[in-house]
Computed example of a mutant assay.
Amino acid sequence: MNTNLTPDQSDIIKERLRQARLSFNLALATTATCALVGFCGIGLVLIGKAPEGTITTTGGLSATVYCLKLARDANDRLDELAKDLNDD
């Protein structure tokens, strides 16, 4: 890894790390929220409110999949940053 970075390069790296951390934290929080929504939907199905439960569960699971994609993208950005640092 090259430690002779210009101040601009250092600022760019710090900003990319900050954005990746925020994206990951957002994805983690929303995934947890969507999982709770999904469990609420399952509860609705179990107590006999099948239409409402199905809609709630489907919405929670769909949002969870999107949030996991967001977390994977944040991880990919960190991997790209590490590769860029090793190339310099």
Results as ranks from 00 to 15, higher is better:
residue 1 M to V: 15
residue 2 N to S: 14
residue 3 T to L: 14
residue 5 L to C: 06
residue 5 L to R: 14
residue 5 L to K: 13
residue 6 T to Q: 09
residue 7 P to R: 03
residue 7 P to F: 11
residue 8 D to I: 04
residue 9 Q to P: 07
residue 9 Q to K: 06
residue 10 S to P: 03
residue 10 S to D: 12
residue 11 D to F: 14
residue 12 I to V: 12
residue 12 I to H: 07
residue 13 I to A: 09
residue 14 K to Q: 10
residue 15 E to M: 14
residue 16 R to G: 02
residue 16 R to F: 14
residue 17 L to N: 14
residue 17 L to A: 11
residue 18 R to H: 14
residue 18 R to E: 15
residue 19 Q to A: 13
residue 20 A to P: 15
residue 22 L to M: 11
residue 22 L to V: 02
residue 22 L to D: 11
residue 22 L to A: 15
residue 22 L to Y: 08
residue 22 L to H: 10
residue 23 S to D: 11
residue 24 F to E: 11
residue 25 N to D: 09
residue 28 L to G: 01
residue 29 A to G: 00
residue 30 T to L: 10
residue 31 T to N: 01
residue 34 C to E: 12
residue 34 C to F: 08
residue 35 A to D: 08
residue 36 L to F: 07
residue 37 V to T: 13
residue 37 V to R: 02
residue 38 G to V: 00
residue 39 F to H: 03
residue 39 F to W: 07
residue 39 F to I: 05
residue 41 G to W: 01
residue 42 I to Y: 03
residue 42 I to L: 02
residue 43 G to R: 00
residue 43 G to E: 01
residue 44 L to H: 10
residue 45 V to C: 09
residue 45 V to R: 01
residue 47 I to Y: 02
residue 48 G to L: 01
residue 50 A to L: 04
residue 51 P to W: 07
residue 53 G to M: 04
residue 53 G to V: 03
residue 54 T to R: 02
residue 54 T to P: 07
residue 54 T to M: 11
residue 55 I to A: 13
residue 55 I to C: 04
residue 56 T to R: 01
residue 56 T to Y: 01
residue 56 T to N: 05
residue 57 T to Y: 04
residue 58 T to A: 15
residue 58 T to Y: 04
residue 60 G to V: 12
residue 60 G to M: 06
residue 60 G to E: 08
residue 61 L to C: 11
residue 61 L to S: 13
residue 62 S to I: 00
residue 63 A to P: 08
residue 64 T to H: 02
residue 65 V to W: 02
residue 67 C to H: 06
residue 68 L to S: 03
residue 69 K to I: 03
residue 69 K to P: 05
residue 73 D to E: 10
residue 74 A to N: 06
residue 74 A to I: 03
residue 75 N to C: 05
residue 76 D to A: 04
residue 76 D to N: 07
residue 77 R to E: 06
residue 77 R to C: 02
residue 77 R to I: 00
residue 78 L to K: 11
residue 78 L to A: 04
residue 78 L to M: 09
residue 79 D to F: 05
residue 80 E to R: 10
residue 80 E to Q: 11
residue 80 E to P: 08
residue 80 E to D: 11
residue 81 L to Y: 15
residue 82 A to M: 01
residue 82 A to D: 06
residue 83 K to N: 06
residue 84 D to N: 07
residue 84 D to Y: 09
residue 84 D to A: 13
residue 85 L to V: 15
residue 87 D to C: 05
residue 88 D to T: 13
residue 88 D to M: 13
